[in-house]
């Protein structure tokens, strides 16, 4: 049997790698990909907790399905924003998108 802490450690590592992608990349699409990695790490944790702590009720899986729904909505809107910004300013480098910077 695999210990629960292995799954949690994997979730922590994947979340941190995703955080690096979301904060340190220049390309806006790469930032979105980092966010997807973070959401996947969250889902791994949710399903692992469900399997080890409450296997008799399905709450963990239900929550994971809702997280996947929100992730799909988020990536669709995020990419729409990226394409709209690209049309307006011909760049998707997040460092050059600074219209709101004071």
């Amino acid at each position: 049997m695999i210990p629960l802490s292995w799954y949690l450690a994997l979730g922590a590592i994947l979340f941190s790698v995703g955080l690096y992608g979301a904060l340190a990349r220049r390309n806006a699409v790469a930032v979105l990909m980092g966010i997807e990695l973070m959401l996947n790490a969250v889902n791994i944790n949710l399903v692992a907790f469900w399997r080890y702590l409450t296997p008799q009720v399905l709450i963990g899986q239900v929550f994971a399905v809702f997280v996947i729904t929100v992730a799909a909505a988020e990536v669709a809107l995020g990419l729409a924003l990226v394409i709209a910004i690209y049309r307006q300013r011909r760049t998707i480098n997040v460092e050059e998108i600074n219209l709101l910077k004071g």
Partner: peptide, 9 residues
């Protein structure tokens, strides 16, 4: 998973 994720970022 970790190797591909590091590649992604």
């Amino acid at each position: 998973i970790v190797a591909t994720a590091v590649g992604v970022v």
